[in-house]
């Protein structure tokens, strides 16, 4: 690794990300700053470094949501599997230069096949699935690949407009090499008619940005008589070479 003070990341494009204030998504109205952010002209070691989770001890089923919430771990075969369409969600974490991001922590969480979250605060009519928790995590391999096995989450209604529904989605969290690359986003599913209707999707101003959040059906990676595969590649901020010491005072 280069000396952290010499690292530089390609600046975030603020107009590509959703704006803080996006009144179509009503909760942003009271939770968006009115002042402009203070731009750090010279990010420091505090911004250019970040945690490395390669030593975090993961459980054998941490990335397998079909098995990691089984009521009785001694069960085998179909007993104790969650209800729903079996899928594999996979992809590659690369930076903006196309370089793989290895050994980085990818975390995900989702509703069950009925659109219900296993959360104290979710009171939706759809039932909990006794065999489904809805959380996964893994570390990318040397080439930046990650994968999870799960069920496709259901869409669900939420109070925004009178009748707002979230498209089926999986929340995704990626650390990347520094806190500067920290990213939390959501993957949607190709062909879901609720995508263009969603106030949260529509916080994005650029339709190309929405396209990058859609997981694509990958029949080649799907497995006969077992599961469908959805590919979702994740791009983190690019790290640039720095040829001169930054900010050297003459």
């Amino acid at each position: 690794m280069k000396k952290p003070d010499n690292r530089r990341f390609i600046p975030r494009e603020r107009n590509w990300h959703p704006p803080a204030y996006a009144p179509g998504y009503k909760t942003t109205v009271a939770r968006s700053p009115r002042q402009s952010p203070v731009s750090m002209q010279h990010p420091t070691r505090s911004e250019l470094t970040g945690p490395n989770f390669a030593s975090l001890r993961l459980g054998p089923h941490d990335n397998d949501l079909l098995l990691n919430y089984r009521e009785d771990p001694a069960l085998a075969g179909q007993a104790g599997l969650p209800i729903g369409e079996r899928i594999v969600m996979f992809g590659r974490v690369v930076d903006q230069l196309g370089k793989p991001v290895p050994d980085t922590l990818v975390e995900m969480w989702q509703a069950n096949a009925g659109g219900r979250y296993r959360h104290k605060k979710d009171a939706y009519l759809a039932p909990l699935d006794p065999n489904f928790g809805g959380v996964g995590r893994c570390i990318t391999d040397a080439q930046g690949w990650y994968h999870f096995r799960t069920v496709r989450p259901g869409p669900y209604p939420w109070p925004n407009d009178v009748n707002s529904w979230r498209p089926a989605h999986i929340h995704v969290s990626v650390m990347g090499p520094a806190i500067s690359t920290r990213l939390v986003t959501q993957m949607y599913f190709e062909g879901d008619p609720l995508i263009p209707l969603c106030p949260i999707v529509n916080t994005l101003n650029d339709p190309d940005a929405v396209e990058t959040l859609i997981g694509r059906l990958d029949m080649a990676r799907s497995r006969s008589m077992d599961y469908l595969a959805y590919r979702f590649d994740i791009v983190t901020r690019g790290e640039l070479q720095t040829y001169f010491e930054p900010g050297v005072t003459l």
Binding site: T185, I200, L213, V235
Partner: peptide, 16 residues
Amino acid sequence: YRETPSQTAGPYVHIG
């Protein structure tokens, strides 16, 4: 490449 755009962590961030 463009960076993957952010989306809210939402009210159920705790599950993950």
